[in-house]
Amino acid sequence: MAGGQERILRRRIKSVQATRKITKAMELIAASQIARSQARIAANRPYRDGMKRVIIEAAQGDPAAAKKLLETPDKVATAVVLVITGDRGLSGAYNSSALRAGERLVKRLRDEGTTVRLFAVGKKAAGFFRFRGLEVEESFVGFADRPSFADARTVAGVIAAPYVAGDVQQVLLVSTRFRSAGSQVVDIEQLLPLSVPDVVVDQAPAGLKGYTEFEPEVEQLLTYLAPRALESEIFSALLEGAASFHTSQQRAMAAATDNADDLGQSLTRIMNRARQDSITTEIMEIVGGAEALRSRK
């Protein structure tokens, strides 16, 4: 009967509204996290810039040593790929776009004859790659939302080990870069050998070139400096990843909330029509009944 349909609709509306409450809450939480993670990116900037300056300066101090340490080899037999994703879903395309880019990169490297060793940050990666027949050697989980520098250090230590041992010739990073609140882009970057922009030599103020002092000497300094620079790079990638995750989640949850609003509205309309129909039917029955009684007289 019509009344039954109305009850079903009422129940659905209630469930849609409950879902909306959850998505709205997640949206607000994500929004507050965006501000926090953006502040952390800003706080990290002086360190990151300082680290870059030190590397550039050291590389200029002894180009020969730098070249040996920083140059990409012509032939890469084995490469490490690190993919940074989130620990949780419900964040739009954040996880899947980084994972897809990682998958494409692995495929391309394999086509070029390079053996790939895969590492990942975030819970979502292992399952994704296993399903596609790729084994993740190690997944780092539990800190993708709020990475600390100690986390970056752990990751750096693990992925640098095979490079230091000479087993791999290149370490690549796939992560989401936080360009601005409106734009986050998945990017592939070379972590090791450290990439120092080629233009640096020209950028140095004339007359200062070659006058920098080093303690201890450059070659030793660069050797110590490389792992610190790697940690710094990974840390900023983690921070940007976290900010991108929250932005993406906020956007996804805002869309879900809007959707729930629309759905609730159209369900309410359907329900009202159903209720009106049942009232009309009832009136018709009463009128019909009264009509029948009168005509019997």
Binding site: A58, G61, L208, Y211, T212, E213, F214, P216, L221
Partner: peptide
């Protein structure tokens, strides 16, 4: 203190990089 020993930086110090 760097691995070469203690040092002091004053204004006008020459460009230096170290640990």
């Amino acid at each position: 203190r760097s691995s070469d020993g203690e040092f002091t930086i004053l204004p006008q110090h020459t460009s230096t990089v170290g640990d």
